[in-house]
Amino acid sequence: MAEAAKSGAAPAPAKAKKKFLYVNRKAPYGTIYALESLEVVLIAAAFEQEVSLAFLDDGVFQLSKGQDTAGIGMKCFAPTYRALGDFGVTKLYVEKEALSERGLTVEDLQQVTYEDENDGFKAKPSIVLIDRAALAKVMAEQDVILSF
């Protein structure tokens, strides 16, 4: 893999972890932002920082279930979100208002879980429904925000 061969800098030296939030605002297909955001997240996981994701605006469609891209000839990367738990990414914030504005509920999203190593590796939901005001607070707590 090109990425592995040239991934550049080694993980950061031992130092306090930073909180990284990846903000996903765009629909999964139509533009490449969602896919390339996910590619950054997968690399970021190797750096042992505190990584979480937020889905707002049309970004909530990235998690919609039953995605089928056969008709548009694009790779369907929706299953990759379900692997994020294995990369230590266990918090996917989904903005409530963004869902309801689009006529969606959490039932329209695919299930994403992680194994909680502090609780006998029980499967726990990664998706956290959060309202706009609370999400603003989450953002205020971050060290680095990457918005795609």
């Binding site: 991934s7 550049g8 920082q49």
Partner: peptide
């Protein structure tokens, strides 16, 4: 170079 460079600059 790779995306690791992006994460590193965030750190």
């Amino acid at each position: 170079s790779g995306l690791g460079q992006l994460i590193e600059m965030g750190i």
